[in-house]
């Protein structure tokens, strides 16, 4: 009996067991999707396991990228490109994630104060996109004409048949304000199951999962400093670091995608009421659980005057915002103090 017990003890020690195994942080950068680099990191027992989870996540991201791609077509896929070309003549049946995203965005836009984020603004945004490629300002008349075809109520969603139809055939959808946040939420389900301690970043769209498994209690997520704004420390390009778990962080700013004409900067976040880039803020970062909401709100708050933005974010429970105003001053909602480096927070 004793001998058997001893043998068992020895066996227990020889075979690696899950509790005793130290997990390591692995990371991978994925190129080619959503016009940005996607960083995925997490704690697993082995490189092989991490690679497996990564490959699976990359498959999902590839699918979503193709679904929300407005510039290319893929055989057999009713994606954004396809919908924009065909939904004006007859209803187009789309995959569930595509329909979900349109429904969520349309519903959000119907709330008072949330109107300025409009996924039906593609006709205007495409003119700005072309203008940035060519380095000249879009024609004012063309912008005005395009803005007449941006009424979201003309986008007809049929839940039963999962179809999209444009009652105004000149409507074009642009999902740039919501697609990455939605995509982060979508892959989150897989990652939570296969690698709960993870962090994913799609450009400026971050979701931090369960705590890192190296003794830290929280992930550290940096926010990039807009040019001309003082960083947290000399020699750095970081504006702030937030320490958190199970939270989305999304930044919208004027310093990543823009063009300069006659010394004036024209960035990519366009106010639907003026058809011009919004100038209230340099940047805004939203912190809340839902990636879709964080993505939506970061664009919305960028389009609103600071006073309206801070009032709106304070009306939403468990959501906070960091603002860089047009004069370069930095301020954040008080909810974020416990996570912020500049207010003494750390990873422990």
């Amino acid at each position: 009996m004793k001998r058997l017990f001893s043998l068992l003890l020895v066996l227990l020690m020889i075979f690696p067991h899950p509790i005793a195994m130290a997990e390591t942080k692995y990371s991978r950068n994925i190129f080619g999707y959503f016009d940005t680099v996607i960083s995925l990191m997490g704690y697993t027992d082995s490189q092989e396991e991490f690679d497996r989870v990564c490959d699976e996540a990359a498959q999902q991201l590839k699918y979503l990228h193709q679904l929300f791609d407005g510039y290319n077509s893929y055989p057999g896929l009713h994606n954004l490109w396809y919908v924009n070309r065909h939904a004006g003549s007859s209803p187009v049946q789309v995959d569930q994630p595509f329909f979900d995203l349109l429904s969520k965005a349309k519903e959000m836009q119907s709330k008072p104060g949330y109107e300025k984020v409009n996924i039906a603004m593609g006709a205007v945004l495409v003119l700005w996109h072309e203008a940035r490629e060519e380095g000249v300002l879009p024609d004012a008349k063309a912008l005005e004409e395009a803005s007449r075809h941006t009424d979201i109520s003309q986008v007809i969603l049929d839940e039963e048949n999962r179809t999209v139809y444009f009652a105004d055939p000149l409507i074009r959808l642009d999902l740039g304000a919501v697609a990455k946040g939605y995509a982060a939420d979508y892959v989150k389900a897989l990652l939570e199951e296969k690698m709960p301690s993870f962090l994913i970043s799609l450009g400026g769209n971050v979701y931090a999962g369960d705590a890192p498994l190296d003794g830290r209690k929280r992930w550290g997520v940096s926010v990039q400093c807009p040019d001309g704004v003082p960083p947290i420390q000399f020699g750095s390009d970081m504006l702030e670091v937030f320490y958190t778990t199970r939270m989305s962080l999304v930044t919208s700013g004027d310093y990543q995608r823009y063009m300069e004409v006659d010394g004036v900067r024209y960035h990519h976040i366009i106010d639907p009421d003026t058809c011009m880039p919004a100038t209230h803020l340099r940047a805004v970062t939203i912190v809340c659980e839902s990636g879709f909401l964080a993505d939506y709100l970061s664009t919305l708050l960028f389009l609103l005057p600071y006073e309206d933005g801070i009032a709106l974010i304070n009306s939403i429970p468990d959501a906070g915002a960091l603002f860089v105003l047009s004069d370069g001053s930095v301020t954040m909602s008080e909810d974020l103090y416990p996570m912020a480096y500049t207010h003494g927070a750390g990873a422990r």
Partner: peptide
Amino acid sequence: NRVDVELVVENSTDMDIPDI
């Protein structure tokens, strides 16, 4: 160009270095 150059460093003792 899909190029990513990385400095592989020893795990730092400073836990507050951001992950991203």
